[in-house]
Amino acid sequence: MDQERVSATLTVAVPAARVFAVLADPTAHAAIDGTGWVQEAADRAPLTEAGQIFRMDMYHPGHPDGDYRVVNKVHMFDPPRTIGWLTGTEKGDGRLEFGGWIWRYDLEPLGPSETEVTLTYDWSAVPQFIRDRGIQFPPFGPDHLINSLRHLAELVSGR
């Protein structure tokens, strides 16, 4: 872990294209999530390009509303190597506001049926006014990333 980024890596016995396809399916994200906060995809269409918006229904006991929705904007889309998104909120007037943190998956094929997957959470672009609210970064425990990768491995291998 560096100052404003944390990563975890896991090798899965599945081709990179299969891993990428699961990551590009918002309906799979609740099963992948290592915190249990992601509940379900509000937008169910597969992710197909940078700039695409998708929403997720969430729950966190420490959130003022408990149940809430995040909006994500695909930031990186390079099949089958990289996929990532910015997370934020949708304002009452329809404006989207992103907090400056990015979820990114990098896939490195190690052969025809094995892939090294690195999950990175990067909060280096979080503006000072958000940091001044007292939000802790990262907002999850140290096991979250590896738990997410283990869930992804189970999902892509059909276990």
Rank of each mutant, 00 (worst) to 15 (best):
N147L: 13
R5C: 09
M76V: 15
T120Y: 11
A30E: 04
E49C: 09
T87D: 12
T118Q: 12
E40M: 01
M58C: 07
S148V: 05
L23A: 01
G111K: 04
A41T: 13
A125S: 14
E97S: 09
D25P: 05
K73G: 09
E49T: 11
D57K: 14
T118M: 06
T89R: 12
D25W: 03
L23R: 04
H63T: 08
S157L: 06
G141R: 09
G141D: 13
F137S: 06
A125H: 13
H60W: 08
T82R: 15
A28G: 03
A50T: 11
I130V: 14
M56E: 06
A42E: 11
L152K: 07
H151K: 15
L86V: 09
A13F: 03
A8M: 08
P79K: 05
F140T: 06
A24M: 11
G94D: 10
V14H: 10
A30W: 04
T48I: 05
P109E: 04
D143K: 14
Q39I: 10
R131C: 03
N147T: 15
A16W: 01
H63P: 00
G92F: 02
P142H: 01
A153L: 01
I32H: 03
E108P: 00
T35F: 09
H29S: 08
L149S: 10
F98E: 03
D78S: 14
L149Y: 06
T120V: 07
G84D: 12
F54C: 01
M56D: 02
P112Q: 13
